[in-house]
Design a protein around this nucleic acid. Structure first.
Lengths: 196, 196
DNA sequence: TTTTCGACCAAAAAACCAAAATAGTCAAAT
DNA sequence: ATTTGACTATTTTGGTTTTTTGGTCGAAAA
């Protein structure tokens, strides 16, 4: 079974974009890597932007898939959420193009990237919502507004992306995540009566 | 009492940097605005970078001061923390140069800005630590590792900076902050016995 | 019909270069 | 101790040419 040209282009482009970045990768580069004429690319994609968008969307859906697999392995909502955060942070760094798209000043302001980012953010919130809802049904989470709660958690997660590029904190990361999760689960206010 | 030239330069520079940005503001512009020769500037500062650094540090310390005033108005640790988050997010946007320094791709990677940012982050963590410690002594907060807890909260706060530039959410901001704080205070896990 | 590609174009980018602007120096003046 | 004008080395800018690149099209192949 031959590979669908469409997908093949996306795969090869992903590698090139990943290595050289969006600007430095030309349509000719991609065509040459595929040993086809540049014009042929335009039979499958109508612009360079569209190719990049496809690459980013592919990576985003892979990230999403990995995350879904991880949380479905767990049944305890608390553990689901922990796995979600862990896997999502872990994989995020590895998806180079998505990373660049969200990060690079140059790309970030392009309207088509903006679209992808919003979509990707919404999916993230939706996944968290799912976990929260599940936890609520199983009566382990107490949270009144699930929508807002999910957004709040997503926001906190964004904060973790910042120091990610400043200094790699492979080691600290685990520790900080655990701390963040503990606060997320139990809060910092002492329970009223003699508990715990 | 005359104004200290050093401080005067910082004040005027802050306005110019704020209006035109770091790159577009020349030392001549600053000198002219002060009606002094450009060379005189170099009597007080040894480079343009140093002037900008002084401006950013001034703004950072003003932000810190405003935040300290706000939290000292409150005595309840929980309210302290709430005021801290509110004021810090509110004022942050208004300190244009600090904002640009942390944000702009061009400036962010300059080593001297990096330094300022780290220092500023550390101070932020230290303030949060203070609030947490106070809350612990007053037995209203329960948190084992104050250092890590403060870092976790600071990280979550960084997440709030991101959507700040994407779309102004003056209105949503208040709502999201409250939600984030509620989770921060009480967590999302249902307490074991029939409480609350 | 569907897919590929060479030839082509307009627009963008890179290379180049001279002129202007700018950060920074210094010796002399105040 | 402070200020400044004159000076310089380095960037930045503006304008021009050349090259690259994204994208089109019609013809050829499959």
């Amino acid at each position: 079974m031959k590979e669908d040209p469409h997908d093949l282009i996306i795969q090869v482009s992903a590698q090139l974009f990943g290595r050289f970045g969006y600007k430095k990768t030309t349509m000719d580069d991609i065509a040459q890597a595929l040993r086809m004429g540049k014009s042929s690319l335009y039979y499958y994609f109508k612009s360079k932007e569209e190719v990049f968008q496809a690459v980013v969307e592919m990576e985003a859906s892979q990230l999403k898939a990995a995350v879904l697999v991880a949380i479905n392995k767990e049944s305890d909502p608390q553990e689901k959420l922990r796995q979600y955060v862990m896997v999502r942070m872990q994989k995020f760094k590895e998806t180079v193009n998505l990373y660049e798209a969200v990060r690079s000043d140059y790309l970030m302001h392009l309207p088509f990237i903006e679209k992808v980012r919003v979509k990707y953010d919404l999916e993230e919130v939706s996944i968290i919502q799912g976990i929260l809802k599940d936890g609520q049904q199983k009566a382990v989470f107490r949270i009144d507004d699930i929508q807002l709660g999910a957004v709040a958690i997503a926001i906190a997660m964004k904060g973790l992306e910042i120091p990610l590029l400043i200094n790699d904190l492979e080691n600290n990361l685990q520790l900080r995540l655990d701390k963040l999760l503990e606060i997320l689960f139990h809060g910092i206010v002492k329970p009223p009566k003699g508990l715990e």
